[in-house]
Design a protein around this nucleic acid. Structure first.
Lengths: 126, 126
DNA sequence: TTCTCATATGAATATTTGTTCATATGTAGT
DNA sequence: ACTACATATGAACAAATATTCATATGAGAA
């Protein structure tokens, strides 16, 4: 029943609840990640949040592959692989080198492998 | 939801490209993560792929909070926080305990913190 | 019981996103 | 120049998803 008035929100974003532990909140408010940082970090995780990209990363954790190899190995169209590789590139998760007509992709650094392995550990234990 | 023309796939999943390094592929094909595993892992990362959930995790990395604390701290509606907490619960990233009317949330284990920190490291270095 | 309030949840909506299709770009060879 | 082919990319469509709104549930107090 207690519907919050939009005007109240403008005045005070916290008015909707009563239980707030104000001391704890004021102690933490300055330590919380900023919205900008959160957005960047979320984008990194979001990049790994697709099964096709996970399979690409898994493959690249084992060897360097060209685009058509990945398409064949994962049974996904060349276009789809290429689109997804761009997403992975934009998040600095993979790097590439050109050799003639072909482009070979690999994981950007050990950092990526650690992040991936950490996730794998979590799902294997749960 | 991932592939191209079903008829082509039945006939020959690789027909669209010519460059395939068949030896490398047959050496790797059995080591690649299964689609099922990839889906599970992707869901874990997807869970962290939203800025609101990142901010929740960041807060819970510092202290235990009840739902209304999180709503106030992050300036997000109670309903939205509650919805997102369920997503985090479903991926075993947070746990909770009831105390009277209130429900206190915290990170499920150190695993989650390591995964989160690893991601934070990556974005800070790039 | 009834009231209050902290939390959870279903439905609806708006935005995001992954794939396909068609086409463009870039590179090597003729 | 032209052809072949590996890769990239824009547009369109379908599927997934985050938030809001309204309401339900659960727990303590009167």
């Amino acid at each position: 029943m207690e519907v919050k008035n939009p005007k109240d929100i403008e005045q005070n974003p916290v008015c909707e609840v009563q239980c707030v532990h104000t001391d704890l909140i004021s102690a933490c408010i300055n330590q919380i990640i900023t919205s900008d940082q959160a957005t960047h970090l979320a984008e990194l995780f979001k990049t790994l949040g697709d099964s096709t990209r996970i399979r690409i990363v898994d493959a690249l954790a084992k060897a360097e592959f060209c685009v058509c190899d990945l398409a064949a190995l994962l049974n996904v169209s060349q276009s789809a692989i290429s689109h997804q590789l761009r997403v992975l590139r934009n998040s600095s998760l993979v790097k590439y080198r050109r050799e003639g007509k072909m482009v070979y992709y690999s994981l950007d650094d050990d950092h990526v492998l650690r992040l991936y392995s950490q996730g794998l550990e979590h799902v294997n234990e749960k």
